[in-house]
Structures are given as C-alpha cells and as structure tokens.
Amino acid sequence: MKPKYIIAIIVGVLLASILPPVLPAYYTYVLSVTMCFAIYALGYNILFGRTGLLSFGHALYLGVGAYTVAALMRPELGPYRVFSMELLLAAAIVTSAIVGLGVGALCIRYTRIFFGLINLGFVMLWHALLLKLYHITGGTDGLPVYIPSTLGITFPYEIFRTFAFYYYILAIFVILTYVMWRIYNSPFGLALKAIRENGVRAEFIGIPVGRYRLAAYVISAIYGGVGGALWAPLSGQVSPDISTWLTSGDVVMMNVLGGMFNFAGPIVGAFIFYNLKIQIMHFTTYWSFILGLSAIFFVLVFPGGIMGWLSTKVRRFYGQKA
C-alpha cells in the first residue's frame, strides 16, 4: 500500500480514537452501532460486489451472531455462562461459519437470482424459528444481553456502552478491514473478481467456481456474525427484528449506496445509510417508502454508488442483454 494511504489511515484511526471524550455519549453509541453495521456491510460486499452474488437474506448472520452471544449469557446456564467478549466472539464466528457453510452449500447450486431469494427464504425460516421456539429464543421479546468483559475488564454499564466498548469495536473494525483488504488484493480476490465477470470462463481457466463462491459466502457470513455479536451487548437486547427481509435489504442498500465496486464503498454506505435512517425515522414512520424510492433511484441512476460516482467505473455493470 502506498505510504500516503497508510498515513491517511493512521490519521483516521487517531481521529476516531479521540471522538468519545469529545462527542456527546449518544453519538459515540451511534458510531459504535454504525461500526457494527460497517463490518456487516464490508463482509457482505465480498460476496455481492466482488463475487457478484446478491443475497437477500444476510440478516440471518447478524441474528446468528447476536443470538449466539445472548444465548451464551443466559442466566439459565448458571456457572456455564460466558462473559468474556473474546470467547463470545469466537463462538459467534464458529456458529456463523457453520450456518454459512450449511446454507451456502445449498444456495450456491442455484442460479444467480434465485440465490438471492433462497437466502431470503432462509432468513424468513430463521425468523419464524426465532418466534416459534420462544422457550429458547425468548420469542418476540427476544433475549437480554448483559455486559461482557472486554480483555478481562468489566466496565460499568454507562461507561461500557458509551465509551469503552467503542474502542473495542474500533479495534476489531480496523483489524477486520485490514483482513478484508488483504483478501481483496490476493490471488483469491482476483479469482473472485473473475468469477463475477465471467463465471463460465473462470471455470475454464481452472478456478473451482462453486467452491470459491461458497468460500466468499462463508467469509461474508462470518463478518455478519461478528457484526451481530458486537452489536448485541451494545443494544442490550436481541430480538427477531434484527433478522428480517427488511434488514437484509438494508445491507444491500448500504452497499449499493456506498458503491459496491469499491473497497471502501460498503463502509461509506453503512455510515451514511444508518445515520440517515435514524434522522429520517425521527420525521416520519414511512421510512420504507423513502428506502424503496432510494433503491429504485440508485439502481437506475447511480449503480456505482457514491464511491463509484467518485471513481466513474460504472458503465461495465449495466447488463449485457438487450
């Protein structure tokens, strides 16, 4: 990476670090939540923007990660309750990887557009199960999430939520972004791009397309799971609302808005989308209407999203068919 980028990133991280003492507590909280969604969106894009697979049910993994954390903290577990955030994250990674592997293996065999819809089916199944199996999952109310220990330290509630956990999330966000950057710039990343561009030809140059698509899917599932797992203690409560087709559509919108063909696109998109959503929801309950119109607008006018508009690489991705 060029030195000027490295400097810019270090400056950015430093700036991000001095925000909590400066900003009102509420904003720190919002930024923390946004970073969780940014992780989710970043992971989603390796599947969507890079490999070219649109999943309409990725909120499944947000839910899997969040509920894994909540479930391991349940009072019913007694001495087996897990409070260590590190262990909770590890568990969330494992559960989202397993679910990702299972669901992905089934969906990958299907054609592109139905891939997205089958994922939608799975998130709806998950949602239905969350509601029906209320003995385990708490039904519509969901489960409470308690304060975990971060690196061994358990902070008091207010400090955790509006200060300490911000740094924890920031650190993980930076690490995961770096990991994703490495993946994008690897031969594997190029292979994914090739699969997106021309799946048939990719197969004929020796790339095992099915397996790689599945790998991209599992990576995106893990990122989603981590995003959900970090979000859970922040919000204090997990409920089935986190895994709906609407929240699945949110992440697609974040990526399209920010620019799916650009590495930073999903991050930019997540920040803008989430903050806009909060602002707009203050004014009207008809958020879906605005979201819907925006989706149509972006698809027709700005398919490259904001970052794409900045880099003007848009025209390749109008389809080939007449």
Binding site: I113, V299, L300, G319
Partner: peptide, 27 residues
C-alpha cells in the same frame, strides 16, 4: 429500464418498489 440490467439489479429495484407499494397502501 430494468429489462436491460443484470437480474440482480432489477431485483433490488423491484424490492424498492415493493416497499413503496406497501407504505403507500398504509398511507
């Protein structure tokens, strides 16, 4: 305008349209 797009893009647009219909009916 959607016919010439990649299928996935049109999916996103019709998804948006669905949201518009749903909220409009509610309005």
């Amino acid at each position: 305008r959607l016919y010439r797009l990649r299928e996935e893009y049109s999916l996103l647009a019709t998804f948006g349209l669905m949201l518009v219909f749903d909220d409009s009916l509610r309005m």
